[in-house]
Design a protein around this nucleic acid. Structure first.
Length: 332
DNA sequence: TTTTCGT
DNA sequence: GACGAAAAA
């Protein structure tokens, strides 16, 4: 998630989309109105999909999801080059505080609103009210600055070596893949997403404690070796926490997946989101359904069949007749 | 059991 | 967009 997406290159209505999305975020985060948020998103995506430049509100109104109000905003923007509503949002206190608080991991729109209404309107105020924060939010605050830093590829490579060393010292039949933008070859990443599997854990393993034991043992070992410094959450299949090898703390996720679902999982968690979407759409067209767990053939009734055997990511591409893409070719 | 947050 | 984990209710 490190690189910016196509700027305005192939979207002649880029600027309209931008302000609609900004208003949408405002409606969701500040007014807690998910319906307006969805409405603005829908309008923005209609505009984005439109191949030519819209030149009036009236023309925009023909598009799905664009009604009277949004048409008026488009006219105002065309005529004056700006929007009073946007200016208003940008200088609005509530809005700015909520955007700030929301940057703390563990604080979403609901909590940010609650804090704001109880007079907490800055990071300093959060520091003074630690008793009001959840465990997750305390970690988000503690590493507020660190978590906004990108992670250089070289650092993830070092962490990967360490994780591989520790985990294989436990049992050399663990399989480990670091997914996300790192696997797609990016020079820097936002966090570290480790996927692990073990032959003793499959989708037919009924004992839930099997995966839990694997995961807890791994996490305990990494903690003992001072790689993991904090735990945000730890369940039977997913760890979310913090690791550190240099002066900056990094977000680390570890998930354990059933052995027979490993390749679908690595594919899914490697992304990119847009690539996944395209690939799933292609799967559907060829009569398959693909998710993070498995690939299934669609019956004529529309009911998915049994998961198909998959022994590599290539297998998945082959099944759905999609030309194979290496991880570094999945950046769109 | 439902809501919130993150992925 | 679904889902796991934590917290609230």
């Amino acid at each position: 998630m490190s690189k910016r997406k196509a700027p305005s290159s192939d979207n002649p209505n880029h600027d309209f989309c931008e302000f609609l999305i900004e208003i949408g975020e405002y409606e969701r985060n500040v007014n807690r109105n998910i319906h307006k948020y969805n409405a603005y998103r829908k309008a923005a995506s209609s505009l984005a999909a439109h191949p030519t430049r819209i030149t009036s509100g009236k023309e925009a109104k023909k598009l799905e999801g664009v009604g009277q109000k949004i048409a008026e905003k488009i006219d105002e923007f065309i005529n004056t080059g700006k929007l009073r509503k946007i200016d208003k949002i940008r200088e609005d206190d509530t809005s700015n505080v909520i955007s700030l608080l929301t940057r703390v991991s563990g604080i979403g729109p609901a909590k940010a609103q609650e804090f704001f209404h109880s007079g907490i309107n800055s990071i300093e105020e959060l520091e003074k009210n630690k008793s009001k924060l959840s465990h997750h939010q305390l970690i988000g605050l503690k590493y507020f600055k660190d978590f906004e830093e990108k992670i250089p590829r070289s650092e993830i490579e070092e962490i990967e070596k360490l994780v591989r060393g520790y985990v294989s010292s436990l049992d050399n039949s663990y399989l480990i893949t670091i997914c996300g933008s790192y696997r797609r070859g990016k020079a820097e990443s936002g966090d570290i997403d480790v996927l692990i599997t073990h032959p003793s854990f499959t989708s037919s393993t009924t004992d839930k404690d099997v995966s839990t034991r694997h995961l807890k043992k791994i996490v305990a070992l990494l903690e003992k070796n001072k790689l993991i410094t904090d735990t945000i959450s730890l369940g039977g299949v997913k760890f979310m926490g913090v690791c550190r090898i240099k002066d900056i703390a990094r977000r680390l996720d570890i998930r354990i997946t059933p052995h027979d679902q490993y390749h679908c999982a690595t594919l899914y968690f490697t992304g990119s989101d847009i690539f996944n979407k395209e690939m799933r759409a292609h799967a559907l067209q060829n009569g398959f359904t693909l998710n993070e767990y498995c690939l299934r053939r669609m019956g004529s009734t529309g009911v998915p069949g049994e998961p198909l055997p998959v022994s590599s990511e290539e297998d998945i591409f082959d099944y759905i007749n999609y030309p194979y893409k290496t991880p570094t070719e999945r950046n769109l």
